[in-house]
Design a protein around this nucleic acid. Structure first.
Length: 422
DNA sequence: TCTGGGGTCCTAGGACCC
DNA sequence: TCTGGGGTCCTAGGACCC
């Protein structure tokens, strides 16, 4: 029986900041979401102060100030690049790896004894730490769900040295009795409540639950999770990433937007980003959705949210053509008199960029692929938005907040760290 | 004053077809 | 009063993940 491992970077975003700013070691550190909105990463010291995940920044700012917590805006250029380094190290060590998220990877291994796995886990940990500076934890189990759980336990109990194996020979059942059902991968807050109402409180209870009841209330995915807890693998390793079904880009505004002109600039900017992603993955979109919304937390203000989806005359990855359609959507959706907080675009009906299905009634256009390729190459070489569409605006008063961002140490020549010898 | 963003899967119900 | 049955496709909404 093969074994799964889950490697998870500890407090990933905080660890990335620490690699290039070692003075942050041992200090409480947090990283904020886009627009400096919520807490999305905390160092152990920050967790110990009682700062919770997802808490709005403005609400916990007094506490952060009081304890001199170091606060950072999110720096995705840095985190993305560090993630790639971690995955590269892992890829050199292990042949069967699935990159699951920015800070997690599953590994498939041949059957092994607990002691062998511990040694392997320690080796991987040491290599990743030495080659990237990022600390990681590793959990082993006969299924992905159990490996996830083992990883959680590795983090929760530091005495295991960041590596933990959950194997039949060490008695999975007794350990599952000490784990809440809501801590299981795939069981969110709604399902946790539903399960508790039915007397299912621990991971062990869930592994022994009535399958028909689970199917009815948690659907087929709940049944799979239940089987995985029993040690029956239902989620295979997926080494090759599946092509995307949708590509989206949206941001909250740094300050409320009331004018159609500013809204249009923002929409064009996000659409530009989405189209870049589309071309990067060699895809075309057949469908475009644009949505906008006021701030739903401001119940004292008039609320409005709406979206419009349109099928494109012809599938495309051409930013200019997408802008044309999105502008029409926006004109239909926009209502004056509201303080808008957000606009976003979603591209769907994605297909391979090599496929070509011309519209019978449209006049064939000149092939603009070389133009788009040149545009992407220039922006890649000289930095984001070196060339941009004029309709994205120049001063961008709506731009999201990012007041405490660290330098892009590894992805921008201008922001390279400087080392001084004394 | 200030509350993120991107993505997936599943199901139920309606529309439609023969 | 009494109004078929089986199938597919699409969409919206719910739930989950990081």
């Amino acid at each position: 029986m093969p074994i799964f491992a889950l490697l998870d970077c500890n407090n990933f975003y905080v660890s990335c900041e620490r690699v290039f700013n070692p003075a942050l070691e041992g200090q409480p550190v947090v990283v904020l979401s886009n627009n400096d909105g919520c807490i999305i990463a905390r160092s152990n010291e920050a967790k110990a102060l009682g700062i919770t995940m997802g808490e709005p920044y403005f609400k916990c700012k007094p506490l952060l100030d009081r304890h001199r917590v170091r606060v950072f805006s999110s720096n995705y250029a840095l985190y993305g690049d560090m993630s790639q380094r971690v995955m590269e190290v892992l890829g050199r060590l292990e042949p069967e790896v699935e990159v699951y998220s920015i800070d997690e990877a599953f590994i498939r291994l041949p059957a092994a004894k607990e002691e062998g796995l511990r040694i392997l886990g320690m080796d991987i940990r040491t290599s990743v730490r030495r080659q990237t500076g990022i600390p990681v934890s590793i959990g082993f189990g006969p299924t992905k769900t159990l490996a996830k759980l083992a990883n959680r336990l590795a983090k929760k109990h530091p005495e295991h040295g960041g590596v933990f194996a959950l194997l039949p020979e060490s008695g999975i059942g007794s350990i599952l009795k000490g784990v809440g059902a809501g801590e299981v991968w795939g069981i969110g807050s709604r399902s946790t409540r539903k399960l508790a109402d039915h007397g299912i409180r621990t991971a062990y209870d869930l592994s022994r639950a009535n399958e028909t009841w689970i199917k009815k209330h948690l659907s087929i995915t709940g049944v799979r999770t239940m089987h995985e807890l029993q040690g029956v693998s239902c989620f295979p390793l997926e080494e090759t990433p599946q092509p995307k079904h949708s590509i989206a880009c949206s941001r909250s505004f740094g300050a409320p937007v009331t004018k159609l002109g500013e809204m249009h600039e923002a929409a064009v900017s996000y659409l530009t980003r989405a189209a870049e992603k589309l071309r990067q993955q060699q895809l075309k979109a057949g469908c475009l959705t644009l949505y906008l919304a006021t701030n739903r937390f401001r119940t004292d203000q008039p609320q409005y949210a709406n979206s419009r989806t349109m099928t494109l005359p012809c599938p495309t990855a051409d930013t200019a053509l997408l802008i044309e359609q999105a502008s029409r959507c926006l004109k239909e959706l926009f209502r004056p008199g509201y303080a808008y907080q957000k606009v976003g675009v979603v591209l769907t009906d994605l297909m391979s960029g090599h496929m070509h299905q011309p519209n019978l009634f449209s006049i064939p256009r000149r092939n603009r692929d070389p133009l788009l390729q040149a545009l992407d190459r220039i922006n890649q070489r000289w930095g984001k938005d070196t060339l941009q569409y004029a309709s994205a605006g120049l001063s961008k008063p709506w731009h999201h907040k990012q007041a405490m961002k660290s330098p892009s140490y590894t992805t921008s020549w201008r922001e390279l760290p400087v080392v001084l010898a004394s």
